[in-house]
Design a protein around this nucleic acid. Sequence first.
DNA 1: GTGTTAATACGAGCGGTGTTCGTATGAGGT
DNA 2: ACCTCATACGAACACCGCTCGTATTAACAC
Lengths: 243, 243
Amino acid sequence: MPPTPQERRAARHQLGAGPGAPAGRRGPSRGHKKPITVDAILDTAFGIVAEEGYEALTMRRVATALETGSSSLYAHVVNKEDLDELMIGRLCAEITLPTPDPARWRPQLIGVCTQLRDQYLRFPGISRAAFAAAPSALDILRVSEGMLAILLAGGVPPQAAAWAIDSLTLYVNAYSLEVSLAAKRQARAGDGWVVSRDELLTRFAALPDTFPETKRYAAELTAGTVDDRFEFTLNLMLDGLLR
Amino acid sequence: MPPTPQERRAARHQLGAGPGAPAGRRGPSRGHKKPITVDAILDTAFGIVAEEGYEALTMRRVATALETGSSSLYAHVVNKEDLDELMIGRLCAEITLPTPDPARWRPQLIGVCTQLRDQYLRFPGISRAAFAAAPSALDILRVSEGMLAILLAGGVPPQAAAWAIDSLTLYVNAYSLEVSLAAKRQARAGDGWVVSRDELLTRFAALPDTFPETKRYAAELTAGTVDDRFEFTLNLMLDGLLR
DNA sequence: GTGTTAATACGAGCGGTGTTCGTATGAGGT
DNA sequence: ACCTCATACGAACACCGCTCGTATTAACAC
């Protein structure tokens, strides 16, 4: 008996347990269609999210893209939650971790965070799933290990390094989620949402006098691209680590 | 004609426009039941989230708690997203902002962040809605203004202060969301999730040798309460601001 | 070559969601 | 007394995640 999806999931959480026998093909192949596999499910899932965003990712949507019924997916995946977790795992697996260089620990760490951000932004809204993903999955743990190695090589004390990893990944997740949501708002503009910087400036200018600082520093508040803010925050945390 | 909910929402986004006539009671009062108001909807919504978490907050759930049908809510609220926004607004409105004291800007700012966090954690999962809330809503802007005033009083340059507000609120949101999700996982424990610190330690100890640093510093990685990590990250960012 | 087994696929359906539409109710103004 | 119209609400639509029973068919034992 090949491993049921729940067993695969358990194996993914509790480490190891071996990859299990490949369980060479049995059952109907429907003649023409290629068989449904976890990888095929993940591929089409990523395709849907890349084109239409995470909220368009439903079991039925994946199933119809695979020309089957939604019930067929549950032979390969426990849940939607499980699917989310698998996607985050694959995303993390594609992060390349540098070999720690004590002299370049800051750009190295920023590089890893930027890779994570770019992966998240390629699939808008998927960082929502990253929040729920358990940090004990191996693919995620691998990224943590890489970041930890960089920080330690940079001379950051272990306790600070350990906690900083949490802070950094949490911020990257949150940043990616917010950017994705803002982009979605931008897409369906016109219903009274603020979009352009100019619009925000005039809005701030028209604020009542109970907002003196916001009015005075409206320029600073609306300055910079989202990328600027990302880098600023990362540097903020890294600066703090040196004390 | 009293303002339709969409008009109220627009008025909330574009500032001012006045509170509109109270539109004194018309139509059926069903004899016994008190009329449905936006405030009543918000009250019961907060009650549901406080007791059962954000994911239990559905239109039907609010409606039945109000002894009515879900369609009745849409006369007072545009949609669920609007309800979310109203809730975040009310949450922000209850934050008390200190008058800036240059000598105590750090504890003051941490105090505001902690208030936000506590509000979010009182209503588990609601920070998910905070991500989608537009920063142009007046109640949210009021908190930003307060934080900006504190930072400026502390001598932080305007540009850094402006961006730091974004970073801080984003982190507080993300932290609250993650803590809520972790608590939910804890609630339905037993399905292979890691819960206790001891469990995590033995898990790390059994890791393959491709995770050398994680194994070596397992103690540091699992140390501290969530509150410790919250304060650590806030101090990390505030330290970075002083350079 | 035949029969058995079991992995795979899948249609139908359950209970749930947000939201809309058409209609009934009944208080306020005339 | 009548009419107006904001309010309330039941029914229904389209969608969601997920389960159950069943049909298909490859691999194996004989």
